[in-house]
Computed example of a mutant assay.
Amino acid sequence: MAKTINQVNYTETDLDKFALAIKQDGICVIPNVFNQELIEEWQQAFEKLFQERQKRPGGLAPREKARYYLTLPWIAPFANEEVFANRVVLEILNRVFWQEYVMVQLGCDIPVQGSDYQEIHRDFRPLFSEQIFTPAYALAINFPLVEVTPDNGPFQMARGTHLLSRAEGLAKIASGEIPMESFYLKPGDIIVRNPFALHRGSPNLTATPRPMIVMGYVIHWLHTPKVDLTLSQDYYQSLPAQTQQMLRCQVIEQLDINKAETYINFKY
C-alpha cells in the first residue's frame, strides 16, 4: 500500500494559522498533504468501485441531478490510518475542537456531466438556535482524486457564514457582500471546513466524474445517525487503542461488499 508522506513539513506556526483560518473563515486549504502515489492508488480503486456501484440497485445515493454520494468501504486502499489519522489532519482537529472528537464519515461526492448548482445549504443544524453561537462541533476534511478546475464542479463556499444566522448569511450572499468562492485544488491538497458554513456544489461540465473524498469528524457527544462507519473486526483490532477510540463505528465479523448505500441526504 502506498504510504502517506506529507509533501510539506508544516510547522507548529503553520498549523496554528490554518486552525485560525478555520475558526474565522470556516475554511482552509492546505496544499500537498498527500503524495501523488497515494492519490493515484485511491483514484484507481475509486473508478473500479464507482463503475461497480453504478450497476447495482441502491449502490449510489442520488444527490440532485447527476450528482452522487458513495460511502467508501473500509478496505484497502481506503482503510488507511495514515489518511484518516494523518498528522496534519489531527493537528488541525486538536486545535479547533474543544473536546474529544470522533470520526463518523468516509465517503465521496461525485458530480458528473449534467450536474447543476446545488441549493446553498449547511450540512448541520444549529445546536440550539440561529441566535446562539457555538464553537465548531463538526469539521469536514475534503480532498480530490483529480485536479479540481472551474469546469469539473469545484466546491463553493461563502467565508465566515458559519458565524452568521442562515438568513443573514443568505442575504449577504444575495447582495454580493459575501461572495460564493470556488476552491480549486490539486491532487494531494485538502480542505478543512466547518460544514455549518453556507456552501454548495457546482456543475461538472466535463465528461469525467469529479470524485471528492469527505471525512467527517464531530465532537464526541454529537448524534450523527445519517452517516455510518462499518469496519471488519480484524482491521479494527489491528489499530492502536487511541485510534480505535477516535472511530465511531460498527465492528462486524466480515464486511458486506454488496451493502446498499446508507447515505441520507442532509441539507439545512
Score class of each variant (00 low, 15 high):
Gln7Thr: 12
Ala167Cys: 05
Lys172Asn: 03
Leu198Glu: 00
Pro225Glu: 05
Thr134Ala: 12
Lys3His: 11
Asn142Lys: 11
Leu93Asp: 04
Gln233Trp: 09
Val148Met: 01
Val218Arg: 03
Pro211Thr: 09
Ser202Gln: 05
Gln245Pro: 00
Pro225Arg: 11
Arg67Phe: 08
Asn94Cys: 08
Gln44Trp: 06
Met212Asn: 13
Val83Gly: 04
His220Glu: 12
Ala76Gln: 14
Leu49Glu: 13
Gln156Cys: 12
Asn152Lys: 08
Gly114Glu: 07
Ile30Cys: 03
His121Asn: 04
Glu81Phe: 11
Gln105Met: 14
Lys267Pro: 01
Arg122Leu: 01
Arg193His: 12
Lys172Arg: 14
Ile5Tyr: 07
Val192Met: 15
His121Thr: 07
Val146Lys: 10
Thr13His: 12
Thr4Cys: 14
Pro126Thr: 04
Leu49Met: 10
Val8His: 09
Phe196His: 12
Ala76Cys: 06
Asp116Gly: 10
Gln156Pro: 08
Ala76Tyr: 10
Leu164Ala: 00
Leu170Val: 06
Ala85Pro: 02
Pro154Arg: 07
Gln156Asp: 07
Asp116Pro: 01
Gly216Val: 09
Val146Met: 07
Ala45Leu: 05
Asp228Ile: 11
Leu239Lys: 08
Leu198Arg: 02
Ala61Asp: 04
Tyr236Ile: 04
Tyr101Ala: 04
Ile252Phe: 08
Gln36Tyr: 09
Asn94Trp: 05
Pro31Ala: 01
Phe133Asp: 09
Glu261Leu: 08
Ala21Glu: 12
Tyr263Cys: 05
Ala171Lys: 14
Lys267Asn: 12
Arg125Leu: 11
Glu52Asn: 13
Asn94Val: 07
Thr4Phe: 03
Phe78Lys: 04
Ser165Val: 08
Phe183Arg: 05
Ala241Leu: 14
Gln244Ser: 07
Val29Glu: 05
Leu139Asp: 03
Leu205Phe: 10
Arg53Pro: 04
Gln242Pro: 03
Asn94Ala: 11
Phe266His: 15
Asn265Gly: 13
Arg67Ala: 11
Ile75Pro: 03
Asp14Glu: 09
Glu119Thr: 14
Asp109Val: 15
Arg87His: 12
Glu253Phe: 08
Ala2Ile: 13
Val88Leu: 06
Asn80Leu: 08
Asn94Ile: 09
Thr224Lys: 11
Ile191Arg: 03
Met212Lys: 06
Glu82Trp: 07
Ile264Gln: 15
Cys28Trp: 02
Ala138Tyr: 06
Ala21His: 10
Phe46Thr: 04
Ile173Ala: 02
Ile110Ser: 00
Ser182Val: 05
Pro211Cys: 09
Arg159Leu: 10
Gln54Phe: 05
Ala85Met: 13
Gly216Thr: 10
His121Pro: 04
